[in-house]
Simulated assay, not measured.
Amino acid sequence: MGFGSPLHWIVLVLVVVLLFGGGRVSSLMGDVAKGIKSFKKGLADDDEDVARAKPAPRIEKQSAGTIDQAAVRDEQKLDG
């Protein structure tokens, strides 16, 4: 009687039903299903929020040889 044998699963299900009763097991499964549905809905809402969000402003990189003129002006203003 290994872990994957059908007899093992039948005995396991019978023990669970006897311990908890059929009504409690079915209500527990209903609660699990509701949790899964709300989780999926939350994921879908997050995807919609991301799609509606504005794209981030694009920052252009400067090559190593160029100087940012605005930064030079700001430094000159701070120096005096």
Rank of each mutant, 00 (worst) to 15 (best):
D31W: 08
E60V: 06
F3S: 13
M1W: 04
V16H: 04
G65H: 06
V50A: 11
P55N: 05
F3V: 13
K77Q: 12
I10Y: 08
F39R: 13
K61V: 01
H8W: 07
K61F: 01
P55R: 11
A53S: 03
D45A: 12
K40R: 13
L78C: 01
R52A: 09
E48R: 14
I59H: 02
L7F: 07
V11R: 14
K40S: 11
K41A: 13
I59G: 00
V15Y: 06
Q76T: 03
I36T: 10
W9P: 00
R73F: 11
P6F: 06
S27L: 11
D68Y: 01
G35D: 03
L7Y: 08
V11A: 10
V72M: 10
T66I: 09
A51M: 03
R24M: 04
E75R: 15
L18K: 13
D47F: 02
A33W: 06
V17M: 14
K40V: 09
D45I: 04
V50E: 11
G4S: 13
V72I: 14
G22F: 13
L78N: 08
G30W: 07
D46C: 06
K41M: 07
E60F: 02
D68L: 05
H8E: 12
H8Y: 15
F3A: 13
G65I: 05
G2L: 07
V16T: 05
G30D: 14
S63V: 03
D47K: 15
V72C: 02
K77M: 07
Q62L: 11
G65V: 05
V17P: 00
R58D: 08
V17Q: 11
P57M: 02
R24N: 08
R73E: 14
V17H: 07
V15I: 15
F3W: 12
F20Q: 08
R73K: 15
R52H: 06
W9C: 07
R52V: 01
L7N: 08
E75W: 10
V13M: 10
L7H: 08
G23Q: 06
Q62C: 04
I59Q: 05
G21S: 03
D74F: 05
G80A: 10
V25P: 04
K34C: 00
P6R: 13
A51T: 04
D47M: 12
G80R: 11
V32L: 12
L28E: 04
R58S: 07
V25N: 04
Q69A: 15
M29T: 13
K34I: 03
R58E: 12
L7V: 12
L43E: 15
V50Q: 09
P55L: 10
K77I: 08
V11Y: 08
Q62N: 09
G42P: 01
W9I: 09
E48F: 01
G22S: 11
M29L: 15
G65S: 14
D68R: 05
A53Y: 00
I67Y: 01
A56D: 12
D74S: 12
V50T: 08
K34L: 08
A56L: 10
L78M: 07
F20P: 00
G23H: 05
G35M: 02
R58T: 09
K77V: 10
E75N: 10
A53L: 03
A44G: 03
G65Q: 10
K37L: 07
D31G: 13
